[in-house]
Amino acid sequence: MHDISLYEKKIINDEEFPVQMFINQIRMPGTYCLPHWHEHLELHYILSGRGNFICNQKQLEVTEGSLVIINSNELHKGSSNTKTFDSLVIIFEMSAFSKEIANYNVIFQSLVEGDRVIKDILLSVYKEDLERKHGYKLAMKGKLYVLLSYLLRNYVTERLSERENRSRIWNLSRLNTVLQYIQEHYTEPVTNKELADLIHISEYRFCHLFKESIGQSPLNYINEIRLKKAYYLIEQNEISLSQIAALVGFQDYNNFGRLFRKYYGCSPSKV
């Protein structure tokens, strides 16, 4: 059984530098990160390529120079629209990095474009990490404090109450059961009512909650899983395309081909 969860627990081991930083390098169009959420503040600064993010229901188109800010307890997913897609990812353990900022419980603007101050700070932090001269962590920490102060003063959209924050976490947690079921049964016909019954709500309420949280309809989400599995099987080149379509849950081969071209930009035979 494949265990799937929307919740992702970040583990940052350095108490003196409670920040995780890395370059995410994607070399094919498609999923950048699967839907998930966590308590940490996460920044994605796009170094090259074009893509899309969904952050708490908002569709974001990103390109070189875009900064995506993923707030605490905010469901998000991302995809690359180009073969090459590189981003600088910075994840803060905010309660350890700055209790002052953690206690504000603010919501930052999800997408920032063309801000030269942010670009200069992030590229400077990245350079420090690459060169790793004496005192580089101290230098990086200082620059990141400057960055967060700048974001607080220029890109805060609202503050959440404790009740609003708990409600957001509850809705996200309920969907784990649904996603687990989809992962185990995507090769079969799956109805919205069947999924709604799993968490004991009406079909109408379920569809609204799912789209509100995941950013797409249940059917589109299921088909996305099927298409990714199909792409993997096609690369193995062991069975025919019609067999693959049936194996991953598509009953209509023509529909499979149409959705595959829409998602990957080419026909299944061109993989």
Rank of each mutant, 00 (worst) to 15 (best):
L233Y: 11
C207H: 00
L198D: 01
N192V: 07
L233W: 06
R153N: 14
Y204C: 08
E164V: 03
R205D: 13
I169T: 05
Y221Q: 04
R226E: 02
R166Q: 13
R159F: 14
N176W: 03
E212L: 11
R159Q: 11
A230R: 03
L233G: 03
S217L: 01
K211P: 00
I222Y: 05
W170K: 14
Y204M: 10
E235A: 12
L209I: 12
Y221H: 12
V178A: 04
Q180W: 01
D197Y: 07
L195F: 02
E224F: 08
L195E: 04
Q180G: 11
K229E: 14
L175A: 04
I234C: 12
T191Y: 05
L195I: 02
I214C: 06
S173Y: 14
S161F: 09
E162T: 13
E164C: 04
I199D: 01
V178Y: 03
L233C: 06
N223I: 00
F210L: 08
E203W: 01
T157D: 13
S167N: 15
Q216K: 13
K229F: 01
V178C: 09
T191G: 13
L160F: 08
Q183M: 10
L179T: 00
V156W: 00
N192P: 02
L179Y: 06
T191A: 07
T177V: 15
F206I: 08
L209H: 00
R163D: 12
I234R: 10
Y186M: 04
H185N: 15
H208Y: 11
Y232D: 14
I199E: 02
A196N: 07
Y150L: 04
Q180C: 05
E164D: 11
L172N: 10
R168Q: 13
F210K: 03
E164W: 10
K229I: 01
S202P: 07
Y231K: 15
L209Y: 01
Y150T: 05
K229Y: 02
Y181G: 03
K228E: 14
L233S: 04
E158S: 15
E224I: 01
L160H: 08
S202V: 05
Q183G: 15
L195V: 03
